[in-house]
């Protein structure tokens, strides 16, 4: 047989990384980012001021963290509408815990519990979502609608609908702390993204997750534990949402269950899509999602700083999603 095979031996490790970056640039995300930055430098007053940078970093952090989780869920071919509600739930729980008499008496333990318990609750919500989707075969959009509706309600019930304000410098460090002058949550985002990226690129779970999203039937017939993998994605997403909820509360030193994470599901989905995630599943560009979050945040900021009404900002966001999906579809050999 005439041999046309060139067993190309590309060194194994860096390929995943290269792949990811080529994907980002291909989707024009970087171009969009540069355009927004240039626009702001020229138009928006004080845009280059360090304060602006810090504000944006601290606000983009929550979107980015949730977007990373959302990317995993979308990569399995699902979607998670409950992220905002789970943020509210965990954000409502934390102050309840560290302002309780028990925590007042044991400050360190109280602080630890006020971080661990809300995240555990969030993870439990993720198990619930994942179980509905994978064990009972409920459509993801419907399954996560349950917490989308009830999660915030539970949070409001827990807090009697009151705004909880507090002073707890240790807890607030999550939202206001600085390392080398940069907001703490900025580092957190990078660490989380790096970890999740590593999991996706190098572990069995990551590979299986992409296979489930790429062709669920084929994955199952190859022995991939499809149900477990899907539950895993929802659990990670919910856990990250829980963490994001804590950060929001820490930034404000106040918890308003009605507002934490409001419309976050849309921001996170938008960030994931802008970052190059395919809605039909099978792809999880983690750093793409971060880039997407940055773009979404900057668009919000640009419009706000230039006095454009919130409603218009929503329309602009919708426009970005449409554009991103269009760019994804338009490629043809």
């Amino acid at each position: 047989m005439t041999m046309q095979n060139k067993p190309v031996t590309s060194a194994s490790e860096p390929t995943a990384f290269k792949f990811e970056w080529s994907m980002i640039s291909r989707h024009g995300g970087v171009v969009a980012l540069i355009a927004i930055l240039l626009f702001n430098i020229l138009i928006t007053p004080n845009f280059l001021h360090p304060q602006t940078l810090f504000v944006n970093i601290s606000q983009v952090a929550t979107i980015a963290i949730v977007a990373v989780g959302m990317t995993l869920v979308i990569a399995t071919g699902g979607i998670d509408l409950s992220v905002g509600a789970i943020m509210a739930l965990s954000g409502a729980l934390a102050p309840l815990i560290f302002t309780s008499p028990f925590a007042e008496a044991n400050p360190e333990l109280g602080l630890a519990l006020s971080i661990v318990v809300p995240i555990l609750v969030a993870l439990a919500c993720g198990v619930f979502n994942g179980a509905l989707v994978s064990l009972l075969n409920v459509q993801p959009i419907v399954a996560t609608l349950i917490f989308f509706i009830s999660g915030r309600g539970i949070a409001l019930v827990l807090t009697n609908g009151n705004l909880q304000t507090f002073t707890n410098p240790a807890f607030s460090y999550l939202g206001t702390g600085k390392i080398l002058g940069f907001p703490f949550q900025g580092y957190l985002v990078l660490i989380i993204a790096a970890c999740v990226w590593w999991v996706m690129a190098f572990t069995v779970f990551g590979r299986q997750l992409l296979a489930v999203g790429g062709n669920e039937r084929a994955a199952e017939l190859s022995g991939v534990p499809v149900k477990r993998v899907k539950i895993g994605a929802y659990v990670i997403c919910a856990g990250l949402s829980g963490l994001a909820g804590l950060i929001v509360v820490a930034i404000n030193s106040a918890s308003d269950a009605a507002r934490i994470g409001n419309l976050m599901e849309l921001d996170a989905i938008a960030a994931a899509v802008v970052g190059g995630t395919l809605l039909q599943g099978g792809r999880a560009p983690i750093f793409g999602a971060i880039l997407g979050a940055v773009i979404i945040q900057l668009v919000k900021y640009t419009l706000l700083a230039n006095g454009v009404a919130d409603e218009v900002a929503l329309i602009a966001k919708a426009g970005i999603i449409v554009l991103a999906v269009y760019v994804q579809q338009a490629r043809k050999e």
Binding site: L210, A211, N215, R217, A218, S222, G282
Partner: peptide
């Protein structure tokens, strides 16, 4: 429908069942 995972590489498809 039941065999290939289209987005994945030849390598990833080939080792899908072997991963564990």
């Amino acid at each position: 429908r039941e065999g290939i995972v289209p987005h994945m590489s030849v390598r990833e498809n080939m080792t899908l069942a072997l991963l564990p």
